[in-house]
């Protein structure tokens, strides 16, 4: 027999509902994996795919510091291909669309990088 069972069971029900939040919240939600648009006809980037997946933000952050603070604007040369240390003149030469490349994963993972606080987002032309 439990004393104050009404209050205790109510509390426990609230507790279980809160703990299992991700389980019931996702019900009916359309789980859509990010679909990243890859550049046509290009296979190589400045680093390998896995590195870019995990650490592109660190790379960009380093570039930002090198360019803005130290004025080191020299090109990054990887396997004979020149890449400019620049978001808009480097990365976005191949990955042309912010919406179809950057935002896909960033939205999925709730990341809001502050790149676009300073950079002007290139207009999407269709």
């Amino acid at each position: 027999m439990m004393y104050d069972s009404g209050k205790i069971i109510t509390g426990l029900v609230i507790f279980v509902i809160m703990i299992t939040f991700p389980i019931w919240y996702n019900v009916g939600g359309a789980e859509q994996l990010p679909k990243v648009e890859k550049p046509v006809g290009k296979k190589e980037c400045v680093q390998d795919t896995q590195f870019m997946r995990t650490s592109h933000m660190a790379l960009l952050n380093n570039w930002r510091d090198e360019v803005v603070r130290s004025g080191e604007r020299q090109y990054q040369v990887v396997e004979g291909v020149k890449y400019e240390k620049s978001l808009q003149n480097g990365c976005m030469n191949c990955h042309t669309s912010k919406a179809k490349f950057c935002d896909e994963c960033h939205t999925y993972a709730a990341v809001k990088p502050y790149c676009w606080d300073c950079h002007v987002q290139p207009k999407e032309i269709n």
Binding site: P22, N26, C105
Partner: peptide, 25 residues
Amino acid sequence: LRVDIIAIKQLTVGLATLSPTITGE
């Protein structure tokens, strides 16, 4: 160390929707 957050979210959302799969590195 940094990890592939998209691959991890696939697993964790999979756990929450009771259909977990491990993909990617």
